[in-house]
Structure formats: structure tokens, C-alpha cells
């Protein structure tokens, strides 16, 4: 990371010219010290003892619709969210954001963030409802949004995207039987 920038910073600082020389060669002077710090990072630790690990204590998150003021991590270039839904059993976390495609409010879109906390992996999927045939199309389709709280006991295996991908209206039921209402 930052090889190019760091070289410039090192030239400026290492040559004894300090910030002034760094500025001459193009490195913004404000950044010179921080970039030089990056160049000094080793690839091994002098401490060879393991650190104590915190207790692994899974904390499930009951399925819930996220409050309207909850931050959504999805870029507006991808999604203008209407709302979101979150669930976790402590091992797998799924957050589903429903709304309109970034840049085209006529296109409904759902983005699914899935974190496998045991395996240490995260996926982000974008799902758009199938567009209707032109002869049956309406001029404007509203973006989907979660309409009501998912059924009590909804689990991360419920895969609400299965419902989202089929339709943007009415209550839907996933393969696992979970009620996932989009409208």
C-alpha cells in the first residue's frame, strides 16, 4: 500500500530536507510524516507471545426492521434505501436493505449483506426484481420496502432474498417458511 506516496515522503524526510523537500518532489507536506510512518512498519512482531483472546460469546440479534435513522452502509450509487432488516444467530448475520437503484428511482433493488462470523467471510449481493414484460409494464414501479416486522422467530436461514427476487409486492414467504413482507 502507498508505495508511490511513501517513496516521495521518504525522499523528502530521509534526505534531511524535511517537509520542504517533500513538497518539492510532490508529496503533500501534511501527509509526509504519516506516510513515512507507514514505510517504517516491519513484517514481523518483536513480541512473539500470543495475546489473550476475548471470550467468544455469540450474541444473536432478533430479526427486526432497522429504524429509519439507522445508517445503511450501501453507497447511494448502488441503493437509495427505503429501509432495512437485520437478523443474526451469532454465527451468521444477514442485513437486507430495500429501496431504489442508485441513479434510477424507477428500479427497485434489494442489497443483502451477509457475514459468516465463524468463517470470517462477508458477501454483498444485489437483487433486482424481474422487470415485467413491456406490454404489461407500468410506467413507474415504486421501490420495495419492508412493510412489517418479520414473523417472530425468523432465522438467518430464511433467506429473505428469495422472496425479494420474485416480487416487490405483498407478503412473501421464503423457502424456510419465514414471512418477509415487501411492498
Amino acid at each position: 500500500m502507498l508505495r508511490l506516496l511513501t517513496v516521495l515522503a521518504l525522499l523528502g524526510l530521509g534526505a534531511g530536507g524535511g517537509i520542504a523537500l517533500a513538497a518539492v518532489v510532490g508529496t503533500p507536506p501534511d501527509k509526509a510524516a504519516a506516510l513515512a510512518r507507514l514505510a517504517s512498519v516491519a513484517t514481523t512482531d518483536s513480541n512473539t507471545e500470543p495475546a489473550p483472546a476475548p471470550p467468544s460469546d455469540p450474541h444473536p440479534i432478533p430479526g427486526r426492521i432497522l429504524a429509519s435513522d439507522a445508517p445503511a452502509p450501501i453507497s447511494p450509487a448502488v441503493l437509495e434505501p427505503s429501509n432495512g432488516w437485520l437478523v443474526s444467530d451469532g454465527r451468521t448475520l444477514v442485513a437486507v436493505y430495500a429501496g431504489a437503484a442508485g441513479g434510477d428511482p424507477s428500479v427497485g433493488r434489494v442489497v443483502v449483506v451477509r457475514q459468516d462470523l465463524a468463517a470470517g467471510t462477508q458477501t454483498v449481493r444485489t437483487v433486482e426484481p424481474e422487470r415485467p414484460e413491456p406490454s404489461r409494464s407500468r410506467p413507474h414501479r415504486s421501490a420495495p420496502r419492508w412493510r412489517r416486522r418479520p414473523r417472530r422467530g425468523a432465522s438467518v436461514s430464511g433467506r429473505p432474498t428469495a422472496a425479494c427476487s420474485r416480487s416487490t409486492s405483498g407478503p412473501e414467504r421464503s423457502a424456510a417458511g419465514e414471512a418477509a413482507h415487501l411492498m
Binding site: 483472546a53 471470550p55 467468544s56 450474541h59 440479534i61 442485513a95 457475514q115 462470523l117 470470517g120
Partner: peptide, 18 residues
Amino acid sequence: WYVYGTNASELASYAYAR
């Protein structure tokens, strides 16, 4: 990683794992 936490202790174990 987008961080989804529930409390401070869980946040710490989450970050350790990441």
C-alpha cells in the same frame, strides 16, 4: 467490514475475529 454490533464486549470479540 461493515460493523454490526450488539454491545461493547461482543464488539471486541467481533473485532478480534476480524
